[in-house]
Simulated scan of single mutants.
Amino acid sequence: MRRTRFDDWPCPIARTTDLVGDWWTPLVMREVFLGRRRFEDFQRSLKVPRAVLARRLDRLVEEGLLKKVPYEERPPRYEYRLTDKGKAFWDVLAAMWRWGSDWLWGENGPPVILIDNETGVEVRPLVVDENTGIRLTGRRLRMSRKPKVAKPPSHAGAN
Rank of each mutant, 00 (worst) to 15 (best):
D91W: 11
P152G: 00
W90H: 07
R139C: 04
L46E: 08
M96W: 10
D102Q: 15
W97I: 02
T25A: 08
I134S: 09
A156L: 14
M1Y: 12
E63Y: 03
E73G: 03
T17E: 07
K151H: 10
D22W: 03
K68H: 06
D7A: 10
T25V: 08
A150G: 12
L57W: 03
G21C: 03
H155P: 01
V127I: 15
E31K: 01
H155F: 13
I13H: 11
V149N: 07
D8F: 12
V20K: 00
E130I: 13
Y78K: 01
L57Y: 02
R38S: 08
V123P: 00
W9Y: 10
N108L: 14
D91S: 14
P75F: 05
R5N: 09
R139L: 12
P70H: 05
A54P: 03
R77D: 03
W97C: 00
M143I: 13
Q43M: 11
F39I: 02
G138T: 03
K67M: 13
P12R: 01
R77M: 07
T25N: 00
R37K: 13
R50S: 14
A95H: 09
E118T: 09
G157I: 04
V28M: 02
A51M: 11
R50N: 06
D18V: 01
R36S: 03
D41H: 15
R145M: 12
R124M: 09
R3I: 04
R38M: 11
V28P: 02
G64K: 01
D41Y: 11
T83V: 09
P76L: 03
N159G: 09
R50F: 04
E130W: 15
D7I: 02
N117G: 06
T25F: 03
R77G: 01
A51H: 10
L53H: 05
A95E: 11
V123Q: 07
R15M: 06
F42E: 05
T137G: 11
D22N: 14
M96A: 11
L60H: 00
Q43F: 06
L126E: 15
R55P: 02
V121Y: 08
L126C: 12
F89R: 00
V127S: 06
D7S: 14
A88D: 15
F42P: 01
L126Y: 04
T17C: 02
E118W: 12
N117M: 12
R37L: 03
R2H: 09
L93M: 09
